[in-house]
Design a protein around this nucleic acid. Structure first.
Length: 352
DNA sequence: GCCGACACGGTCCTTACCTCA
DNA sequence: CGTGAGGTAAGGACCGTGTCG
């Protein structure tokens, strides 16, 4: 058994996590998985991707299989409390790609097409879409059936819902709307946009399905959320960055605790060593007994006992391998010494 | 098969804006 | 009302990878 720690390189962070430890995306709050044992993460991811790909019917999806690779660890950074796990109209939120349970929900969202396409303050004029690729208007695009009207959550004003909610009236939303439209009329690209709660929630749900997007998924999401593909792309980039940041914080906290545990362990062992040395000097009789050396197989972790004839010139180090009555239990430390966390500190992931 | 150019997508760092205490 | 902190959308530099000639 080996304990793997990773800090820094998120691409490889916790890459050793066994798939069986994968935290369910349905979990609540912030979840993190920690596995033991070193595995070839690359091969594992490839295998997982291949398995997923086998479920994909669309041959185009096959071409982009590297884009749909899930990381070995899943983080759920959603605040456990106020933010709903699903947007208010979760029954209408359909991901334009097969979900993990194998249901291709793309076709089931056809009923959404009946809703009118709402005005979005974040939506630039139609010409804006041109810079994000012609695929948006591709007649073969599969995204047209994923239309979703998010304007229904904006009080019909089309303004920033967050503004409207916090101010408690529609003036704010109106102001945001007019502000946005003013800028659009001036031909200036707005520097700062605020995604609505519903858009964020839906993106969040999407992120849980895939933390990276292939072009199709990006376009579909953008279409569905009335956003530009670039906005979806940026959101996922920032979301990954936030995940990594959060992961780093968790790692730091974990390593800190590990350090504390090791320090405590070291202190305890030093004390034990002193006691053993004191015992040796005060009870030299014990040193005349046949010494028993415990050795642990590093692979199977079995402890083998071998009796040896005590050397007349036993040095101080021998005390650590010689069983002393009432002190034999200390030998078990030789095993735990290498894994001080196994019993002293439960990793956050273990709590779930 | 090797190599250079190119496109694309990712990370990282940074900036600018917005909200809130 | 002004201000600083925190959150977040977005820009840009840089890098790795795949493709093509």
């Amino acid at each position: 058994m080996e304990l793997g720690l990773s800090l820094g390189d998120a691409s490889n962070a916790f890459a050793f996590v066994d798939k069986s430890h994968k935290v369910s995306a349905k979990g609540l709050g912030f979840c993190m998985g920690l596995g033991v044992g070193i595995v070839n993460s690359r091969e594992d991811e490839k295998l997982e991707a291949d398995e997923r790909d086998s479920a994909l019917k669309d041959s185009d999806e096959m071409e982009e299989k590297k884009d749909s690779t899930d990381p070995p660890i899943q983080l759920d950074l959603l605040p456990p409390g106020p933010v709903p796990r699903k947007p208010p109209s979760s029954s209408q939120l359909i991901f334009p790609w097969p979900t993990e349970n194998g249901n291709s929900e793309a076709g089931s969202s056809g009923h959404l097409g009946a809703t009118a396409r709402g005005f979005d303050v974040n939506r630039l004029p139609a010409a804006e879409d041109a810079d994000d690729g012609a695929a948006v208007s591709s007649p073969n695009s599969t995204v047209s059936s994923f239309q979703m009207d998010f304007s229904i959550y904006r009080g019909g004003s089309g303004g920033n819902k967050r503004d409207a909610e916090t101010s408690g009236n529609e003036v704010e939303a109106e102001r945001a709307s007019s502000r946005a439209s003013d800028e659009e009329e001036n031909g200036l690209t707005r520097k700062k946009l605020r995604l609505s709660k519903e858009q964020s929630a839906f993106l969040e749900e999407s992120f849980k399905e895939h933390n990276t997007l292939n072009p199709k998924q990006k376009l579909a999401l953008a279409k569905q959320l009335n956003l530009r593909p670039r906005q979806v792309e940026v959101w996922f980039q920032n979301r990954r960055a936030r995940t990594k940041l959060k992961q780093t914080e968790v790692d730091c906290e974990y390593l800190k605790r590990c350090c504390e545990t090791l320090t405590e362990e070291n202190r305890r062992l030093q004390k034990e060593l002193q006691e053993l040395r004191a015992l040796k000097t005060s009870h030299p009789f014990y040193m005349q007994l046949p010494a028993t050396t415990l050795t642990m197989c590093p692979s199977c972790e079995r402890v083998a006992t071998t009796s040896t004839t005590p050397s007349p010139t036993t040095d101080a180090t021998a005390a650590t391998t010689t069983p002393i009555p009432n002190k034999a239990s200390a030998l078990s430390l030789t095993k735990h010494r290498f894994y001080p966390f196994s019993h002293a500190y439960a990793h956050p992931s273990a709590a779930s």
